[in-house]
Design a protein around this nucleic acid. Structure first.
Ligand SMILES: [Zn+2]
Ligand SMILES: [Zn+2]
Ligand SMILES: [Zn+2]
Ligand SMILES: [Zn+2]
Lengths: 135, 135
DNA sequence: CTGAGACTGTAATGTTATTACATCAATTGC
DNA sequence: GCAATTGATGTAATAACATTACAGTCTCAG
């Protein structure tokens, strides 16, 4: 049940994302990897898909962009395997904070159970201004 | 402080959305309005922007699509002016349910207050299978 | 060796959204 | 009345994001 090593392309894409201080679009990643032999969007999208599957990165739907997972190992709820993660995105400086809130999770889960809706993936994104930018 | 009437284009776009049984992309709306003289995406996007401003429609970020607001007037929290609205989206039949949960709202608000983050717009979208489709 | 499965490279295409510029109509101030 | 402003519109071009299709490579179980 141990995950296989990342492939070369997956590693390259993940490295770019982990060293970035903000979310990156697929095409921005492509540009950053031209020197490493990347030529086509698909090379990026394929790697992103695998990294998403593993939970190593997240997609910000409201931005069409991607970030490396910033989850604290063993934050609150024991082993990683995060349930639903939420993001606060500053529209001024682009800074993103990833967090997790049990109460919100439970609440949405309850809603789903009552409606017999089977959640597959939940997106929570708060756009606004971070402390620094709203000062 | 009374809102001005909708323009012709805004009315056309809103009508298409309210009569649809599911979310529509901007280009789908465009196609449906060719007979009414629509020729370019911008005609649709401009109308959508105004309708979004008024809260008459919502954008589903995870779908790049739009729906008419399905809020019950005076649901739970008094007058419309909904705080944050959430969506459950069936990935099989495309059906969308719009709802509002106070507890979730408060919880996210508290998080923001603690971090001194000023929320402008919050997106909550649950993708999954509706009762019918998961049976 | 060989067939299956996973990864890769490349080109072409499809889908979503915006920029730029010209025009028209209603409103405002003089 | 008549500029000046404001907001809506029409059109074309382009940018940004994502997928389909097809072919080649590599690894490994049988
Ligand atoms: Zn994470
Ligand atoms: Zn900021
Ligand atoms: Zn609504
Ligand atoms: Zn369904």
């Amino acid at each position: 049940m141990i995950a296989p090593a990342l492939t070369k392309n997956q590693t390259l894409v993940f490295d770019v994302l982990s060293h970035s201080d903000g979310p990156l679009s697929a095409y921005t990643i492509l540009d950053k990897l031209r020197d490493h032999g990347f030529r086509a969007p698909l090379q990026v999208y394929r790697a992103l898909d695998k990294l998403l599957e593993r939970g190593m990165i997240h997609r910000l739907e409201s931005l069409n962009a991607f970030v490396a997972c910033a989850h604290q190992e063993k934050a609150c709820c024991g082993a990683h395997g995060h349930g639903t993660v939420a993001f606060a995105i500053c529209e001024s400086c682009g800074h993103v904070v990833e967090f997790h809130d049990h109460a919100v999770d439970h609440r949405l889960d309850d809603w789903a159970k009552q409606r017999k809706f089977k959640p597959a993936k939940t997106t929570i994104e708060i756009r606004g201004l971070c402390e620094t930018c709203s000062a």
